[in-house]
């Protein structure tokens, strides 16, 4: 009975299906290429997950609260450019802590700009972030007169190139470095998990995503919750941008623009309800990882990179569609069971 219950609980969640798809895809790539489950490939994938992963965590919070944030690439670019340029001008020679603190401060400030309009003026997040995205971009390109910065301060470069460990593929001899920035992903993930699941603030994000009016009546300060959440999201997104700059060892102002769609797709693929209120960080990471794997591993099974977008697109449609269908079916089945029990 308990086993049945557990199975029903599992099959009622879309993360379960995404996990199945994820495992299936990994196995398929392994069977075709024998290169998937090699230490260097896995480290490569984890390394590729760092930036999208951190972005996804921020986006996840926004979607759970019932909105969409499309401004994070612009926010991250502006922050990254401003910090790098400022430090270059100062001829900064110190470690990575000052850049990170500056990133968090500027990111939080820009996030507060979003949060002010979305939280306190109660405007739709999608509209506000579409607008602020242009504002951030324009500010970076116009006011700061952004150009590609070919060098970055030494502290940032060291942070981006240092490795936690190096994995080697014994057969091919190829090596991959596990970047130190991976720690950033883990730290953000742990903090976000704690915030969302173990604080009333986080439950307030879920509650206001489910029903904002009820959340207000229950005693949540919905406006402040949304405002603060966008401050956090701004900090998280800016940190992802900083990791990107450090890992690329240069600041390319438009490099991150356009990432928002795949990030949103990954979060939704992971079972986060687009209407807000439900989803788990586990699913969010899983969906993002799935997209990262597809983007990086198509080449391993002999699919030309030009087809990559088609694959990612098909995955999004099929993945979200199938899991949505399965979940509805499972819920209907459990409703039927409830009715049957009631009829007894």
């Amino acid at each position: 009975m308990d086993l049945k219950k557990t199975v029903r609980k599992l099959t009622g969640r879309s993360e379960f299906y995404i996990l199945l798809v994820f495992i299936a895809l990994c196995l398929l790539i392994e069977v075709r290429s024998h290169q998937f489950f090699t230490p260097n490939n896995i480290v490569d994938l984890l390394s590729a997950l760092v930036v999208p992963g951190i972005f996804a965590i921020g986006e996840f919070m926004v979607i759970v609260s019932g909105g969409f944030d499309v401004s994070f690439p612009a926010l991250a670019s502006l922050t990254g450019f401003a910090v790098t340029k400022l430090l270059l001008n100062m001829d900064y020679q110190g470690g990575v802590w000052l850049p990170i603190l500056m990133t968090l401060a500027i990111g939080g400030l820009l996030g507060a700009f979003n949060g002010l309009f979305i939280g306190y003026f109660e405007l739709p997040a999608m509209i506000v972030t579409l607008g602020s995205s242009s504002v951030f971009k324009g500010f970076m390109q116009g006011t700061l007169n952004s150009k590609q910065l070919a060098t970055i301060p030494v502290g940032m470069r060291n942070f981006g190139t240092s490795a936690l460990f190096v994995a080697q593929n014994k057969q091919s001899g190829l090596t991959s470095r596990m970047p130190t920035t991976f720690i950033a992903l883990v730290v953000v993930l742990v903090l976000a998990w704690f915030l969302l699941n173990r604080t009333m603030f986080g439950r307030g994000i879920y509650a206001s995503g489910g029903n904002a009016v009820s959340a207000h009546r229950a005693g949540f300060n919905v406006k402040r919750t949304r405002f603060l959440m966008f401050v956090f999201v701004g900090m998280i997104s800016a940190l992802a941008g900083m990791c990107r700059v450090c890992m690329m060892q240069q600041m390319h102002p438009t490099n991150m623009l356009g990432m928002e769609m795949n990030i949103i797709a990954g979060v939704v693929l992971g079972g986060t309800a687009i209407v807000g209120g439900s989803g788990t960080l586990f699913g969010c990471m899983l969906g993002t990882a799935l997209i990262v794997v597809v983007e990086n591993s198509m080449i391993l099974i002999g699919i030309p990179t030009v087809w990559k977008d088609v694959f990612v697109g098909a995955l999004i449609v099929l993945g979200t569609g199938l899991s949505a269908m399965q979940v509805t079916r499972a819920q209907k089945a459990s409703l039927r069971n409830v009715r049957k029990e009631a009829a007894k």
Partner: peptide, 22 residues
């Protein structure tokens, strides 16, 4: 209220306990 002011996306436990906790 007519709409009960509940959170359909959360568990019974959270729905019952939120107000007291807050």
């Amino acid at each position: 209220y007519q709409d009960f002011s509940i959170f359909p996306n959360l568990t019974v436990m959270e729905n019952l306990a939120f107000n007291t906790e807050l």
